[in-house]
């Protein structure tokens, strides 16, 4: 008998890592969306939320650490699996006719890597402030008098740039595609498959993907459309 380590490197356990880390990312995206939508509540709401996160202190770093680990695990395992899968069929078919697979399922790696590239941009933009220093360095005075980072102004200012918004919308669209396959796939990988609730899982996956798209896209659209100023 080999060790747990070898078992974890098996195709199945690698996929379990993909599924668990993927579900963690979906969880993060849901929370992130909830926070972002506070932009519709005006500067006070979102800035207070932003400060609230920072006030978590050590816990915030634990959460950030967790999500970073999930991302890294997800990315590296996918590359490892992709290499494996590519070497499992070196000569490809002259003709293939997909039956059950979907566009989303066949493009997971491309959508995933594109999302990764965008993610780095997104982080350097809104987290590290490397894209537009001016809007990033603004500050806001909360009703309780505390001076905090002005998330609201930053978001509104930057999304008024149509290029930034369009790139963002494209990225969110990729996230949607990625999620349509990812969600139900994760359940299947984790062994959660039963005729009585498979339909529900499928619908939930689609629902979450659409929710991501509507939720995330609504922000730049609202800003470009001057609904949020």
């Amino acid at each position: 008998m080999a060790s747990i380590r070898t078992y974890l490197q098996s195709t199945i356990m690698s996929k379990v890592i993909m599924a668990l880390s993927g579900l963690a990312v979906i969880g993060f995206l849901l929370a992130h969306l909830a926070g972002n939508l506070l932009v519709f509540g005006g500067p006070e709401a979102i800035n207070k939320y932003g400060q609230g996160l920072r006030d978590l202190g050590g816990l915030l770093w634990v959460l950030r650490g967790g999500i970073v680990v999930a991302f890294i695990a997800h990315i590296f395992t996918s590359i490892h699996l992709k290499q494996r899968n590519a070497s499992a069929r070196k000569v490809s078919y002259a003709n293939t006719q997909p039956v059950n697979s979907t566009f989303a399922s066949r493009t997971m790696l491309i959508s995933g890597l594109s999302i990764l590239i965008y993610l780095l941009f997104h982080l350097s933009h809104f987290t590290w402030g490397m894209v537009s220093t001016k809007s990033f360095n603004g500050s806001y005075i909360l009703q309780d008098g505390r001076i905090v980072h002005d998330v609201y102004a930053m978001v509104v200012a930057d999304f008024q740039n149509p290029i930034i918004s369009i790139v963002y919308i494209v990225a969110v669209t990729l996230v949607m595609f990625h999620t349509t396959h990812a969600f139900s796939s994760a359940f299947q990988t984790l062994g959660i498959n039963h005729p009585s609730y498979n339909g529900l899982i499928k619908k939930a996956g689609l629902g979450i993907a659409i929710l991501f798209w509507i939720g995330y896209v609504s922000i730049p659209v609202a800003i470009l459309g001057q609904f949020v100023k």
């Binding site: 199945i12 690698s14 996929k15 699996l81 494996r84 899968n85 070497s87 697979s101 396959h181 796939s185």
Partner: peptide, 15 residues
Amino acid sequence: VSTMDNEGFGGCTNH
């Protein structure tokens, strides 16, 4: 599963 992996089959991506 380990034999399956060692034989060089790919992994499942739930297509």
